[in-house]
Simulated assay, not measured.
Amino acid sequence: MSVDELFWNASVEELKNGYIYDNSNEQFTCIVCNESYQKGIIYPSDGVLYEAELAIKHHIRQQHGSMFHYLINMDKKYTGITAVQKEILGHFKSGLSDKEIAAELGSGSTSTIRTHRFKLKEKEKQAKIFLSLMELLNSEEEQGKDEEKLITIHKGATMVDDRYAITEQEREKVLTTYFKQGLKGKLSQFPSKEKRKIIVLQHILKRFDANKTYTEKEVNEIIKQVFDDFVTIRRYFIEYGFMLRNKDGSSYWLNK
């Protein structure tokens, strides 16, 4: 399962923890970067020995700061919170009083902060109702048909609109059409329609390691195994938010 699928399929509790536990293989996996720890193995870090679950908690602290920090810094299109709400939530997390937060924001009014606190609590209530509705909608007896399941949107998506309203059935059909030699073969042509581009790009992206940083040459070589016009694919990886790169273009990595 990809990092995006791990993240978006995680429960609220798993999102808070930052990891999932797979009973079948007794493995703890980070939902941010896909790093895994096997139950029963001891992992050394900074001179300390950690059993698997403690090791993944240590990993999250070391690599991602905290899940609060990671989640609150996600794009507004995923969190639904404004820049001001984000700042206020950060101050709440720090334990500041309403008066101290008002001073930090320069508003000078504790009543303004209390209003924000009230609105956030109302938003929390609405979120609970919405989650309940979606869980009821997605229950086994309601879901049934795999072809109606929508594909997972990657967390780095630069635009989230109806071009991502792609079902599993649509994806399979597009991949079969454009990868005539099989899913591990070459891309016959790059599609012009937006939905199809996303499907093809997501598939090609599976050839990259989520925990590795690549040079531009390495990115080109991997893409060329699939499609000769590596410049076009590489450009769309960046444009659609599948990949990030540094300013001089010397390093590329997956946008996790």
Rank of each mutant, 00 (worst) to 15 (best):
K224G: 14
K212M: 08
K224A: 09
T213P: 12
A210P: 13
T215A: 11
I204H: 00
K195H: 03
T213K: 13
D229H: 04
L205V: 07
A210M: 11
F227E: 03
D228K: 07
V226M: 09
H203I: 01
K212R: 03
Q225C: 14
T232R: 07
I223N: 03
Q202G: 13
R207W: 10
V231M: 13
V200Y: 07
F227K: 09
E216C: 12
H203M: 03
T215V: 06
F208D: 00
V226W: 04
H203G: 02
V231K: 05
K206D: 12
A210E: 14
I198P: 06
F208E: 06
R207L: 11
I222T: 01
K206N: 14
F227T: 04
Q202N: 14
I204Q: 10
I198Y: 02
R196P: 01
Q202Y: 01
A210L: 10
V226G: 04
Y214R: 01
L205Y: 01
K212W: 02
D229L: 05
L201P: 08
I198R: 03
E216Q: 15
V200G: 11
D209N: 14
K197Q: 10
N220F: 12
K217S: 13
L201I: 03
I198F: 12
K212C: 12
N211A: 13
K197N: 03
I222D: 08
I199N: 03
I204P: 04
E218N: 10
I198V: 10
F208C: 03
E221S: 15
T215F: 06
E194H: 04
E221N: 15
I198A: 02
K206T: 14
K224E: 13
K217Q: 15
I199F: 00
V226F: 07
N220K: 15
Q202M: 09
D209M: 10
Y214Q: 00
A210C: 13
A210R: 11
E194V: 05
I198Q: 05
K197M: 02
I199P: 07
H203L: 01
N220G: 15
K206C: 08
I223E: 08
L201A: 02
I204G: 00
K195C: 03
H203S: 03
F208H: 05
R196C: 00
D209E: 13
Q202W: 06
V219K: 05
K195E: 14
K195N: 14
N220C: 12
V231A: 10
D228N: 11
V226K: 09
A210S: 15
F230G: 06
I204V: 01
V219Y: 04
F208S: 08
I222Q: 04
D228Y: 00
N220Y: 07
K195S: 08
T232E: 09
I204R: 01
D209A: 11
Q225V: 13
V219A: 02
E216S: 11
L205M: 09
E218H: 08
K197D: 01
L205K: 02
I204S: 04
E221T: 15
